[in-house]
């Protein structure tokens, strides 16, 4: 695969990552609580920015880890078998997103177990300092690892195949695209938008987001399967 194809895979994987909503839910609750306690605008923005920064750092760390492991096991060219496994994971997670990413109840309640949701609620409610918001941002990304592992695998495997000078570009691009929803919400709240309007938009469009994320995982998995698994076999005359 050439550099443009690899960059395109990283961009699509990051878009899929961005469509997962746990971080957005946590940020919405965090801003709601901060505003509800009459915190100054500056403090609200400080908490939200710290949360977003935490999510960016953890996303970068996870992507680096996946890329490092891919490099350690396969060098700069992950084997077709590794790609095939990644594609299988993408397909499986795509189905899981379709079936149970959102709960069937009203609102934007997610798949996460209720005790974990209550614990996160409690932590968000207790957050007063930027350092706590930062660690919540880290936690939010980690808590969704079950779903984001699929786009991370696609991006990590692609990253190691890029020329060295393009690897930081790919990494920064992934992190920025994956955290775009958080950056947008922080900007909207900072600009005076009400969280009720943001939350209503999320509720009205949750099924679309769910179908789009699941379908995009299938599309990405299929594209990679053809390019990284079938094409090399065909070139070797194995097909």
């Amino acid at each position: 695969m050439n550099a443009i194809t690899l960059i395109a895979i990283i961009a699509l994987a990051a878009l899929i990552h961005a469509s997962f909503q746990l971080g957005v839910s946590m940020l919405t609750l965090l801003s709601g609580h901060a505003l509800g306690t009459k915190a100054r605008h500056r403090k609200v923005m400080n908490l939200m920015s710290s949360f977003t920064l935490g999510a960016m750092v953890m996303t970068a760390l996870l992507l680096s880890t996946v890329a490092y492991l891919a490099f350690a096991f396969y060098g700069t060219f992950p084997s077709p078998l590794a790609w095939a496994i990644a594609c299988g994971i993408m397909g499986g997670i795509g189905v899981a997103v379709w079936i149970f990413y959102y709960r069937s109840s009203t609102g934007t309640a997610l798949w996460i177990p209720r005790p974990l949701a209550h614990m996160l609620h409690y932590r968000i409610k207790s957050t007063e300092y930027a350092a706590e918001a930062f660690s919540l941002g880290l936690t939010g990304v980690l808590a969704e690892i079950v779903f984001i592992i699929a786009p991370l695998l696609a991006a990590g495997f692609s990253l190691v195949q890029l020329p060295h000078y393009l690897q930081p570009v790919g990494m920064i691009m992934y992190v920025l695209i994956a955290t775009t929803p958080l950056l947008v919400i922080t900007t909207l709240i900072g600009g005076g938008h009400r969280i009720s309007r943001i939350q209503k938009w999320r509720e009205n469009n949750k099924r679309f987001m769910q179908v789009a994320a699941g379908s995009a995982l299938f599309v990405l998995g299929f594209f990679i399967y053809v390019n990284a698994v079938l094409a090399p076999m065909w070139l070797q005359g194995a097909l």
């Binding site: 946590m26 609750l29 709601g32 009203t106 309640a109 997610l110 996460i112 309007r197 209503k200």
Partner: peptide
């Protein structure tokens, strides 16, 4: 209405 929406849905945002 907007506050009522947030109040009602607070528990099901996440």
């Amino acid at each position: 209405p907007e506050a009522a929406f947030i109040y009602k849905n607070y528990k099901i945002i996440m």
